[in-house]
């Protein structure tokens, strides 16, 4: 490897760190809110985080995802997709966190119910 290789690697790692900090401040923080389940980019179901509920997403192609909302967290407990990445994703419970099942086009997002609680600037 040459000097410029290390330079390039450094640039990418710094970019990753900056992006990580940006997303970190944008998400997390307050818990509470609601679980929004999307199928093919459309809202499929909305469940409050405090609920104790199971959402089953099925489509005509036989794709199936089971989402369990319990104890202030949402997790994907079952999916019939190949890679099972979503099932191994850690549970989502904070604003902005998400679970994504790419093969079945299902996303689970945590959304704050108190919209515009603090205006970014007025902190």
């Amino acid at each position: 490897m040459k000097k410029r290789d290390f330079l390039l690697i450094g640039v990418f790692l710094i970019a990753a760190a900056v992006l990580w900090l940006v997303t970190k401040t944008a998400t997390g923080g307050n818990t509470g809110g609601e679980v929004v389940v999307f199928k093919d980019g459309k809202v499929f179901a909305t469940v409050p985080l405090t609920a104790d509920e199971t959402v089953i997403v099925e489509d005509e192609n036989g794709n199936r995802n089971v989402i369990r909302v319990e104890g202030g967290e949402a997790r994907m407990i079952e999916a019939n997709c190949r890679d099972q990445v979503c099932v191994h994703t850690r549970p989502a419970g904070k604003d902005g966190q998400s679970i994504i099942c790419l093969p079945n086009r299902v996303t689970v997002e945590i959304r704050s119910t108190q919209t515009n609680e603090i205006d970014g600037v007025s902190e």
Binding site: T23, F38, G41, I100, L102, T107
Partner: peptide, 8 residues
Amino acid sequence: LRTSTVLS
């Protein structure tokens, strides 16, 4: 997926 959450 028509969502930007993947950006995280």
